[in-house]
Amino acid sequence: MVLLVVGFPLVPALPGMFWTEVATEILILGLFAMSFNLIYGYMGQISFGHAAFFGLGAYGTAILFRELSGGTGAITMGQFFVALSVGPPVAALGALVVGFFCVRLTGIYFAILTLAFGELLFYVVFSWYTFTGGDDGIQRLLPPPFFRDATAYYYLTLVIVFGAAAVMWRITRSPFGYVLRNMRENQLRTRFLGIDVRRYMLVNFVIAGAFAGMAGALWGPFTRSVGPLLLGWQESGIAVFMTLIGGAGYFAGPAIGSIIYTFLQAYVTGFTVYWPLTIGTVILLIVLFSPGGLLAVFDAKVGFRLGRTPIAPGETPNGEAETGAAVTAETKAGS
């Protein structure tokens, strides 16, 4: 964690714009993946439609951006921040509607329902030409002159993403965060404690959606455009990949995953078009040989704290997590 906090502000010092832009992408996608992990790592449900909220946030910002600039691409600083701030509430609203239905289900059904809603929203955005631009998307999202510079935009992203991460960190350490973990371990038992499981799931779903929307809001002005693919299942897959690469059991896991995934992509696509083959093989190896993600490997093999914070307090680095997995395996085999 210390390494990350110190390292990130120094990136623009590297020669060339390339690394600054890669780092911006790492930050935005990292925030997106961390918001996904609120649902997966903390609440124990896997969502295959999380990009819907990333995309809703991006479109919320982009559409207001378009209206404010009147299609000229010129936008003042104030308008720019208004447009940015509209992303999270739009995404949260979407998450409230989608979540209302999704939290009624768990496991594989939760996964498929989130996927179905994600694809549904994708097709709505894809074919609603008059409002969303359809499959053309929305172009010319030029931030105000000051933020057109990659370094300036990078620092803006840095501040927002670290701020958002701090808020998420606080949430996961709150009583609310502990209820989430409780639900991950045993929903039935959580209900016995008198907790309204669905309500907690919904609140968390909305929170995760809002943070994904924040990431989405930053994405549009960064790439200067938005397109319907931002809501698609591939984008949702990115959050899942990052989280599993880094380690879903750690707060910083998705962020580490984002660093590895984005770097690897920037590097590999430099000399081959077979990026899916590469990332597919990486994921296959991780799933087969280090199911807890890379942070878990560091915990087990190297045994030192690498910016790592186990999600459950008082959890020994590898002991309890493994017992948990074993118990799940037993229950599954028995069912």
Partner: peptide, 10 residues
């Protein structure tokens, strides 16, 4: 016997 998300991911 592994967790559902890991199976999906494979």
């Amino acid at each position: 016997g592994r967790e559902l998300p890991e199976q999906l991911l494979l």
